[in-house]
Amino acid sequence: MLEFINQNIQLLYLVILMIFVGIELIGHVPSVLHTPLMSGANAIHGVVIIGSIIVMGQATELPALILGFFAVILGTLNVVGGFVVTDRMLEMFKKKK
């Protein structure tokens, strides 16, 4: 346990710091922006696609290839859909003259 923590101490620092950054970022946001913000955050966790690309790029057997293929598609849907939907929402916020 102690060894495990020591080996991954950098990652643990990263985790703790990012938790606080995340809280700071959302602190004082007007409620009108909650939906776009949720949608934007939704797109950002699409970063999971990186994992699926790494898996796919190293896959040698058919089952892993097939699953990896779907994982990349799903991850892309998350990323592309997420950012496009957010952009469409925010497009509406333009000040009308």
Binding site: L14, M18, I19, G22, A41, H45, I50
Partner: peptide
């Protein structure tokens, strides 16, 4: 994967999303 960008993106959304 010891992949920093996945960690940053994931944790950021995890904590921001919880607060939201």
């Amino acid at each position: 994967y010891d992949n920093k960008v996945m960690m940053v993106g994931g944790i950021l959304v995890g904590s921001a999303g919880t607060l939201l």
